[in-house]
């Protein structure tokens, strides 16, 4: 089932075209990696999908509905959940309350998962009653995932989930992604291609606001356009 379908999505900020005519799709049960060097437009595209702002042109369909103009909270109610690149916990609330704040997706058939189970799923059991402001960065990254899962999403958007994590923490988080993908679609925007690519089913590489390559991870790894974008002209030759 196609969950997400972007057609010619474009976004300008003043004179800068941050995203120029991007089309892509995500189906249930797959992990899509969205890669590219700094300034490639990954985060802007991510925010367009999540509904932080509307695109200037193009259309976004999610779960069979046109959501191009829907605000972020309505998209979340349809089953589109996101995490933030710089974690944004509710610092004064406990970890459990952070999870309880989420509103389950409309028409969610699975009964709301208890907060304790979601916290256990991301390895935060035992921290439930701690103030979120007292947790480490690695824990906050996982708390963001637990909070997003509490909406019972169909599609999970992860914005640089590995940034700032230790090697062990990153490995744990990627293992969680693999466990989750059977029940939902996942989009990962990530800087760390090497570590992230193995869990991706497909990858899209952006540069200068456009898609320069897309396909299976192995093909992406050896694509000369991708190598050029990351390492420069000489390395590609």
């Amino acid at each position: 089932m196609t969950l997400l379908d972007l057609r010619d999505v474009t976004k300008r900020f003043g004179g800068l075209q941050a995203v120029g005519g991007v089309s892509l799709g995500v189906v249930q049960g797959e992990v899509l990696g969205l890669f590219g060097p700094n300034g490639a437009g990954k985060t802007t595209l991510f925010n367009l999908i999540a509904g932080s702002f509307p695109p200037d042109a193009g259309s976004i369909r999610f779960a069979g509905q046109d959501v191009t103009r829907l605000p972020a909270w309505r998209r979340a109610r349809l089953g589109l959940a996101r995490t933030f690149q710089v974690t944004r916990p509710f610092r004064d609330l406990t970890a459990r309350e952070n999870v309880l704040a989420a509103v389950p997706r409309r028409g969610s058939t699975t009964p709301a998962a208890p907060a304790a189970r979601l916290l256990a799923e991301v390895g935060l059991d035992g921290r439930a009653d701690d103030r979120a402001g007292d947790l480490t960065l690695g824990m906050l990254k996982r708390l963001e995932v637990a909070r997003a899962l509490a909406t019972d999403p169909l599609l999970l958007l992860l914005d640089e989930p590995l940034a700032g994590l230790t090697g062990r923490e990153a490995a744990d988080l990627l293992a969680l992604v693999v466990r989750l993908k059977s029940r939902l679609g996942i989009v990962i925007v990530e800087h760390n291609v090497r570590q992230c690519l193995p869990v991706c089913d497909r990858a899209v590489v952006m540069e200068g606001g456009v898609v320069i390559a897309s396909g299976l991870p192995d093909a992406i790894r050896t694509d000369p356009r991708v190598i050029r974008a990351y390492l420069g002209q000489e390395a590609a030759e």
């Binding site: 605000p71 109610r77 933030f84 944004r88 916990p89 509710f90 704040a101 989420a102 509103v103």
Partner: peptide, 22 residues
């Protein structure tokens, strides 16, 4: 939960909206 959602708005409105809070 309603009270927790109100406090979530006080803490961070974007994050609250991302969790489906109108």
């Amino acid at each position: 939960r309603l009270g927790i959602r109100l406090l979530a708005i006080r803490e961070d409105e974007d994050a609250a909206a991302a969790l489906g809070i109108g």
